Simulated assay, not measured.
Amino acid sequence: MELRQLYYFVKVAKKEHVTQAAEELHVAQSAVSRQIHQLEEELGVKLFLQKGRNLQLTPVGQLLYKRVEAVLKDLERTVQEIHEFHDPECGEIRLGFPHSLGIHLMPEVVSGFRKKHPNVKFRLKQGNYASIVKDVVSGETDLAFISPFPEGHEQVTGDILLTEELSAILPPNHPLAGEESIKLEQLKNEMFVLFSNGYSLRPIVLDACEKAGFEPKISFESEETDTIRGLVAAGMGVSLLPDMALFQTKQLQPARVRIRDPKVLRQIGLIRRADHKLSPVATVFYNFLIQYFDTYNHKQS
Rank of each mutant, 00 (worst) to 15 (best):
E140M: 08
D159W: 10
S167I: 00
F149T: 04
E224P: 00
D261S: 15
V257Y: 13
E185V: 08
E164Y: 03
N189Y: 09
A168K: 04
F288L: 01
V110S: 10
P262G: 05
H276G: 02
M106S: 01
D226E: 15
H276V: 02
T295Y: 11
D135K: 12
K188A: 14
D74F: 04
F288R: 09
N297L: 07
E164D: 12
L194Y: 11
L241G: 03
L101P: 07
L64P: 03
L95A: 08
D226N: 12
I182K: 06
H17N: 15
A144T: 03
Y292I: 03
E23M: 14
H17I: 01
F122N: 13
V18Q: 14
V137K: 15
A245T: 03
E2Q: 10
T225C: 12
Y8E: 09
G178W: 04
S301M: 11
N119T: 05
I182P: 03
T227K: 10
H26R: 14
Q62F: 03
R266D: 00
Q291S: 15
D243M: 02
F285P: 06
A245E: 01
L49R: 15
F85Q: 10
N287K: 14
S219A: 15
T283H: 10
T227C: 01
L231Y: 05
K250I: 06
V32H: 07
K51L: 13
E151F: 09
F9M: 08
F145Q: 08
T163Y: 02
V257Q: 09
Q35F: 02
E154S: 14
P254R: 03
K263A: 13
P150A: 06
I290T: 05
L161V: 01
K125L: 13
K121W: 00
Q155C: 00
L124N: 05
R123F: 08
H174Y: 09
S222F: 10
G96E: 09
G230S: 14
V232S: 11
N197I: 10
P242G: 04
V193M: 11
I290H: 05
A208T: 00
P175W: 01
L184K: 08
D142I: 08
F48Q: 14
N128W: 03
G269D: 11
K263L: 13
V110R: 12
M191H: 10
A70V: 02
P59K: 06
K211F: 00
E81F: 04
P175F: 02
K66Q: 13
E108I: 08
Y292N: 05
S279G: 12
Q50S: 07
L3D: 02
T141A: 12
N173L: 12
E81R: 15
I36N: 06
R4N: 04
E40K: 13
I146Y: 05
R229K: 13
A177K: 11
P172G: 07
F9D: 02
Y199M: 09
A21W: 06
Y65L: 12
G112P: 01
S222R: 12
V12Q: 09
H117N: 12
E221P: 01
H26P: 00
V110C: 14
A245Y: 01
L170W: 04
